[in-house]
């Protein structure tokens, strides 16, 4: 992965701030958006990007974030619908080349994959990691020994 991208991260919670810190430390240009200004406290001292407080479902704010110039948008808020809306706006209106959204609800994930939104579903990921740790590659229940 090249480290000179312009990346917009929406949501500065645990995942968003961690991601922003790492991407910024690696040399990328970052804009982090969160509706709650106090979350910016989780950004590290090495974070050299911009902080933007506001509602990312408002196009005006995304314009202010210069999304039209961004290479990537990652939507990480704790609200699936915010992430899905912002991701679609980025993909279809700002024509952002790479758009990803965190989606907790696996059912919603499938629908939006079909709309061309790349999603990461922590619920499915955690479930399959647990399954893997249990030694079962698939989620099919195995037959019990008599």
């Amino acid at each position: 992965m090249s480290n000179d991208r312009f990346i917009v991260v929406v949501g500065c919670g645990r995942v968003g701030s961690r991601l922003a810190n790492k991407l910024s430390a690696a040399g990328n240009s970052l804009v982090v958006i969160d509706i709650d200004e106090s979350t910016f406290g989780d950004l590290s001292a090495e974070f050299s990007g911009f902080r933007l407080a506001g509602d990312a479902t408002q196009v005006a704010l995304l314009r202010e974030a210069k999304l039209h110039e961004a290479d990537t948008l990652i939507a990480t808020t704790h609200d699936d619908n915010v992430n899905l809306m912002v991701a679609q706006v980025a993909r279809n209106i700002f024509k952002t080349p790479l758009v990803m959204a965190r989606v907790f609800d696996p059912k919603r994930e499938q629908v939006y994959e079909r709309l061309g939104i790349r999603t990461v579903c922590p619920t499915s990921v955690a479930a399959s990691l647990f399954m893997e740790a249990l030694g079962g590659e698939t989620s099919e229940p195995r037959e019990r020994k008599q």
Partner: peptide, 27 residues
């Protein structure tokens, strides 16, 4: 919430084939 209105309409149309969906845009 605009994001909820959007997703409700999209799910209704895409998953259930509802012929007509309308969303309120608060913004």
């Amino acid at each position: 919430k605009d994001q909820d209105n959007l997703v409700i309409c999209q799910l209704a149309a895409l998953q259930f084939g509802v012929p007509r969906t309308v969303a309120l845009a608060n913004d």
